[in-house]
Design a protein around this nucleic acid. Structure first.
Lengths: 117, 117
DNA sequence: TTGACATATACCCATATGGGTATATGTTTT
DNA sequence: AAAACATATACCCATATGGGTATATGTCAA
């Protein structure tokens, strides 16, 4: 038995992992190839413990893999969990395209008015 | 002058708005057409104030528009801000496809082994 | 105008979060 | 073995977050 949680963890899936800008930055760097932690510290200009913490979230969600290399820990991108995000958001592509073409229509109208009705 | 914030707000962009499952549900419903708040309350089986709060976040991020209709407030999807999410995640498509084809290779190998050698 | 209805807001609460500093852990070099 | 290096973890802290209940606000119906 346990009382209802006041708030559920929000760092347990790809959507949340990727909601944090720092973590997107990390993934963006790793997209260019695997990197030890210190590289990320330098590139992100963020305290080392914070980088490690973000990496932990990414690891728990499966967005990165780690490999030991002497005294370094080399992190590597695993983009697979991002497919879920992509699949969800892809469903809205039509919706924003409609919006854009609706805007185009308005602009066309304005242009037509400019040239006399 | 102000002291450094201990933590920045995380509900101020599309990435974060969409990280919350309830809000994705709301958008999924609105994708089927505009809806008054109470419809969402019924469909999501969530307390009305919570729905209103999630709608507020979505509104602030520009993912929904509102329209007054008598004593109802009708919410409507605006998918445009999702394009940013799509654009970012799209850049990783190649990465997860590589992973999948790497997996395919492994499976092929196992299959080959099964049939002798 | 009084009451029902629809929605937003003001609170309270427990917990998650991200940043920070100090330190533990493990590895390589000297 | 000791020192330097690389990384993870344990804390502390302020604040954001999501859920909940009560209530304010505004609109329509009787």
């Amino acid at each position: 038995m346990f009382s209802a949680m006041a708030r559920a963890a929000t760092t347990t899936d790809a959507f949340n992992a990727v909601a944090e800008p720092r973590r997107r930055q990390i993934l963006d760097v790793l997209a260019g190839g695997e990197r030890p932690v210190n590289d990320l510290v330098d590139l992100l200009d963020l305290a080392q413990p914070l980088v490690s913490k973000h990496l932990r979230v990414l690891r728990e969600v499966g967005l990165v893999d780690v490999r030991d290399a002497g005294r370094q820990r080399v992190y590597r991108l695993n983009a697979v969990p991002l497919k879920a995000v992509h699949d969800w958001v892809k469903g809205y592509a039509q919706a924003w395209e409609e919006r854009f073409s609706a805007l185009d229509d308005v602009l066309e109208e304005l242009k037509a008015e400019e040239n006399g009705t």
